[in-house]
Design a protein around this nucleic acid. Sequence first.
DNA 1: ACAACCTACAACCATATGGTTGTAGGTTGT
DNA 2: ACAACCTACAACCATATGGTTGTAGGTTGT
Lengths: 122, 122
Amino acid sequence: MTHGDHQDEDRADAMFHALADRTRRDILRRVLAGEHSVSALAASYDMSFAAVQKHVAVLERAGLITKRRTGREALASGDVEAVRSVGSMLTELEAVWRGRIARIDDLIAQDPASSHPTERTE
Amino acid sequence: MTHGDHQDEDRADAMFHALADRTRRDILRRVLAGEHSVSALAASYDMSFAAVQKHVAVLERAGLITKRRTGREALASGDVEAVRSVGSMLTELEAVWRGRIARIDDLIAQDPASSHPTERTE
DNA sequence: ACAACCTACAACCATATGGTTGTAGGTTGT
DNA sequence: ACAACCTACAACCATATGGTTGTAGGTTGT
């Protein structure tokens, strides 16, 4: 958290948005399994080459895939580290939830007279 | 995988889309930490009540939060199981990637003459 | 009874998104 | 040299999205 906390949110927005489309998730799966050229990917879907190229661009801008040029081909490859960083965000959310449970447990421990554990954080 | 594979994709679309907005991620964090009424949430953001109410609805439709009625209030609570299920999807993607690495290792083992491990799956 | 409060939703608006076709330019193989 | 191929991007279009204000109806407390 050097200074750009706002940029982290931009990054998270881009990553989750990139994942919020089944075609893009499918592309990501393929390029995580191995490098594929954009036209090789495009052949797999019932839409124009340009549409697939845009999906690849969205994934690339989100940092979920990288491309390298080889002659006339653009070889796309999935970035597993980026996928893991998305996973970390979810793990942090789970940690927040665990905090809630811990707080409730503390309350119960402090007040053994409580009959039912009705949570009401405010 | 009873029969609705297409519905899983719908669900994934909804979940990732719900997470692809910083306000919604923030709301989710809060309601994972503890129940909050919609108006309590709305007070935290610089936008109209209706806008926040819509964000809550998006999260609810995605299954990431649940709401229960208490008098005139609608209490929202984060569903950690749903968050975990999103995490599982990412873990599956990582597994795909691990498959790629395993395949490359096999190739290297089969052909010890390979000088540099240039991957080129096609 | 009634004012204050909370929620839900309709109607509207500007912009983003996912798709299309068309054009241009670099690469490859014969 | 040149046809075939691959990529990139512009221009366009219909729809989705994130925001707004306004209205209506149930709940609460005095």
